[in-house]
Nucleic acid binder design. Sequence first.
DNA 1: CCTTGAACTGAACGGGCGTTCAGATCACTC
DNA 2: GAGTGATCTGAACGCCCGTTCAGTTCAAGG
Lengths: 195, 195
Amino acid sequence: MARKTGSHADITGPRLRSAARALFARHGYAAVSMRQIAAEVGVQAGALYLYTPDKQTLLFDLMKEHLDDLLATLAAQPLPADPRARLAAFAHFHVAYHLDRPAEVFIAYMELRNLTPENFAAIERLRHRYEDALQAILAEGVAAGVFRVPDARLATMALIAMLTGASQWYREGGRLPRETVAEIYAEMALRAVGA
Amino acid sequence: MARKTGSHADITGPRLRSAARALFARHGYAAVSMRQIAAEVGVQAGALYLYTPDKQTLLFDLMKEHLDDLLATLAAQPLPADPRARLAAFAHFHVAYHLDRPAEVFIAYMELRNLTPENFAAIERLRHRYEDALQAILAEGVAAGVFRVPDARLATMALIAMLTGASQWYREGGRLPRETVAEIYAEMALRAVGA
DNA sequence: CCTTGAACTGAACGGGCGTTCAGATCACTC
DNA sequence: GAGTGATCTGAACGCCCGTTCAGTTCAAGG
């Protein structure tokens, strides 16, 4: 008793990732079983192993995809040369991007400790690349005399934590529209660094 | 073959909580077994049930203790009347408190989804009480005309995320001393709200 | 119409899980 | 020095885990 109708390989693969993303985000990697994911996909657990070598790789791929996409989208972003406008654009981009992907954000920040050491190192490298992009903006602003921050690295971590936090409380259709939230956060980020 | 030397009830209880706190923070609630905790305590798994009714209550008690202590310590804090000085004192307190308790902070923010609905509601109530304390400071500052924030609730969430984030990267004996970190974060918080 | 091979099932593997409990141990009281 | 009760062990309960794999189904190619 196998599949009833036609070939499903190109359907089941994405569905697996999508189901895993939703379940990991809601209940956490360790609390979700392959059987639960399989049930969500509408398949037996064994069939999942046609699309992922194991559960750990499934988690790693989700996180890597998220960070790769984050870095690629940032790179494609037109960032003004002026440090102030540049930081405003970065902050606006960061908030909007994260509000659009609450599940991915949740996983990327909560499941780091469930990665094997090698996978963890790979993800941390990507994340560091992203942080460095912000840190460079701050350093330029300091050099240009328009930002006043005692420590660029600390300010980077503080801003990213603040901006990312938006996705923890924001709910679609809530009191404030997405654009307004991004705008206010960008404004706070600028002020925080003394712009 | 039971205990070898004397009575241990007043020792094993705290040791259970301490071991659970450390293991939950490192590996996550769902990934830690009662047997692992028992091994850390130096006891068989069954013995733990003399000190906690179940694993869920163990997690809940750790989180409730943390938030109760946070609220009590905040209440005992002498906060100046001037909104600017008041916010600076709050921010400084928050960062210092969180840098001192990285394990508790990690658990309180990462394991919310592993609480039963009733326990979750109870913890959220406590957390909301704390957030309201900050929001009140911001509202006073806005009323006094010294803070400029479009939305006090949003600013509250943004500041708490930023300040709490310090405990994610801060390491004892690192580049910056604890006091300096708290000072810089407090300064950034003040500027973020336009003070 | 027969063959092939991709897609999937269903059962099994060894092992760990949270929790319970009868029984063992032993500091203490009277 | 007998008895008590707090403390803990060790084994067991039923259940779920990630992963493997022989076998089944069926769309597509010749």
